[in-house]
């Protein structure tokens, strides 16, 4: 039985790969939204994402398929499909069957990430994702990346960041973060807060701005004494039970390479610890449609109401 009162697959943009994972001419499998998918980068550099099973006899194109020009050839009978999923060649037949078509996904590649758009009703994207200009900019580091596959619903991550009370209990913050402003507009949910945290032993006041673009993509800006970083946090439902969580961080480089190295290691340790505190709770918790909240709990009701717009079936039963 599902632990959640709504569909595991909300609408919006979701990470499917990092750009550097797909070189030109490369084919890779992916799992998302309960489906086997195939990703490939054609000769012209464009990334295409399609359902993986060939409509001919069901072979998985991601396992042994090959890129020819801007098309992908099935490993089983050599049928070729273009980036839109249309069959362009059957090697032993001049007539292409009209039903020979693969479902293709809407893809955007920006800031070193490949995103796909999911909509349960097949509608075109309702919004575009903004860029993170610091990614790849001079003076900023390369990506520092983390990934987890967690048995939970994608919405738990969103609730977590505005759940101010859990920070000192789960993550041992000295004081819970103070929420300054909440900016909710259509698909965007922006939280601005300050928190005090020890960075390399020194207590620092830090400015944090977290922005959700739907439930799949979060941009975070953290500015504190020695640390200035931008984060792209993405969550992608794998199947009805599991979510792939990826974090990609760039930080402002210091002229001192030793300092950069220390900062890098500190962040790796810090983020891993933070998540390892959260994961067992997420994997075992229940989603309460009517949680028992108290005034200092953070805007959990607000984020639930905002999140409900991404579910086609409107299944959220009494979102607080």
């Amino acid at each position: 039985m599902s632990r959640y009162p709504f569909t595991p697959y909300p609408n919006g943009w979701f990470r499917i790969a990092y750009s550097d994972e797909l070189k030109p001419g490369e084919v890779k499998p992916a799992q998302a939204f309960g489906k086997d998918l195939v990703m490939f980068r054609g000769g012209n550099g464009q990334v295409h994402v399609m359902d993986a099973h060939c409509p001919h006899l069901g072979a998985n194109l991601a396992i042994g398929g090959s890129v020819i020009g801007d098309t992908i050839a099935c490993p089983f009978h050599g049928w070729r499909f273009d980036g839109e999923g249309a069959c362009v060649e059957v090697p032993y037949c001049s007539k292409i069957p009209p039903r020979a078509k693969l479902a293709s996904w809407v893809v955007r590649e920006q800031d070193g990430v490949v995103f796909v758009h999911f909509d349960a009703e097949g509608r075109p994207p309702a919004f575009e994702l903004p860029r993170v200009p610091e990614v790849g900019a001079p003076g900023w580091s390369r990506f520092l990346r983390f990934q987890w596959r967690i048995r939970m619903h994608i919405q738990e991550i969103a609730e977590n960041a505005v759940d101010t009370a859990h920070f000192d209990v789960v993550h041992h913050f000295t004081t819970p973060p103070a929420l300054h402003s909440l900016d909710i507009k259509e698909h965007v949910f922006r939280v601005h807060m300050t928190s005090a945290r020890r960075v390399l032993g020194i207590l620092n006041e830090s400015e944090v701005e977290i922005t959700y673009y739907g439930l799949g993509v979060v941009h975070a800006r953290v500015e504190t004494g020695p640390v200035n970083l931008r984060t792209i946090l993405t969550t992608t439902p794998v199947d009805e039970e599991h979510v792939d969580v990826h974090i990609a961080i760039v930080f402002k480089l210091s002229p001192n390479p030793l300092k950069n190295l220390i900062l890098r290691h500190w962040m790796m340790k810090e983020i891993a610890t933070d998540f390892h505190h959260d994961i067992p709770i997420w994997e075992a918790k229940q989603y309460l449609s009517r949680p028992l909240l108290c005034p200092d709990d953070g805007p959990i009701g607000k984020i639930r109401r905002w999140a409900s717009q991404f579910y086609s079936e409107r299944q959220i039963a009494g979102a607080a």
């Binding site: 099973h53 409509p55 001919h56 059957v90 039903r99």
Partner: peptide, 11 residues
């Protein structure tokens, strides 16, 4: 890795 398609798209 393949799936069995009930209605294969034959040519």
């Amino acid at each position: 890795h393949k799936a069995y398609l009930q209605r294969p798209g034959l040519a």
